[in-house]
Amino acid sequence: MIKKHFWKALAVLILLYTFIAGLLVPLKPGIVEMDPRTVQSGRNISFKVKGYNTHYMNSDIRAWLKMDEDHVLAASPILIQNDRDLKLIFGIPPFLPTTDKTQNFTLIIDSPVDGVHLLPNAVFVSQDSVNLALASLQWPPERITDLHEKAGITFPFRNILAETIRNIYFHVPMWFAMILLFLGAVIYSGRFLWKKNMQDDQRAASMIRTGVLFGILGLLTGAVWAKNTWGAYWSGDIKQNMTAICLLIYLAYFVLRQAYEDPDHRARVSAVYALFAFFAMIPLLFVIPRLTDSLHPGNGGNPALGGEDLDNTMRLVFYPAVFGWFLMGLWIAQLNFRIERLRERRLEEE
């Protein structure tokens, strides 16, 4: 009894773990605001900086504007207002060590408590005229040293994403579970064509039904995420469009099943269609989005599931979430299958 239901308990425990860890582990400190963003060179300028998850009070804070490895400007003085607000004063020299009229700088803040955190393209500095000779005198070689690292378990802080980086544990596993369920349907469809056992046909149909459910949930969660990061529910991103097509192909599977009265005929046609749909899905989801520009990571030259988008701490939650949702999907599919089997038996008895 316990052995038979062990995997369902495992699904619940794994998902419980991903919910707790995925929601409670804090983000690394980050910088959310810098004011002003465009300034003129040759002035002492006071910047207002707002941190996220930071603990600036009673901390030994250092801050820099960085152009490249050799051209760094330290802030002085640094006025700490509270845990999240800083006032940084930078004395920007009249000439910049670049031939461009406008140069962007990254803001870097380091503290022993929060570790190093930064805001790329924090400030754009304009100079009236270019003078490299004077600039090299005004920018003595300075390097950033002795940076700290935040202690404890944290998820990466990324501007624009902020806390929504946690959606990787909820939105992305929907797709992984969907693909695994569709793969399961391919295996059962293949087995049906080989052994002509009606139960395999029903198993495949149940898995596809659950997979489509996960696919729709993936689209909806993705739309809400996109609205608050990319700016629109549907931006016509190549991967959004291709997944919509893929789901329509799978919805047609059920239309196809409705069209046949004879169970044997229906099972044979839908098994072949399930194979076709899966092999149509592979280029739609994994090939075409990589060929063009896409907002999704892992497409159009963006790194997939790597770097700051998915670090090793996040993997500890993400991969269990994929496995947990897959087991959950199997459970739902199995319930669906058992109901379908009961109905078939009823029909046979009548």
């Binding site: 806390e163 929504t164 949930l217 969660t221 809400v224 608050n228």
Partner: peptide, 27 residues
């Protein structure tokens, strides 16, 4: 967008929960 866009995650979890509940009603 408040609280570091935390409510986007809350909404996503809500959608998944409601979707599964609707599927259970269907079963």
């Amino acid at each position: 967008r408040s609280m570091g866009k935390m409510y986007v995650v809350v909404t996503a979890i809500g959608i998944i929960f409601l979707g599964i509940v609707v599927f259970l009603i269907f079963l």
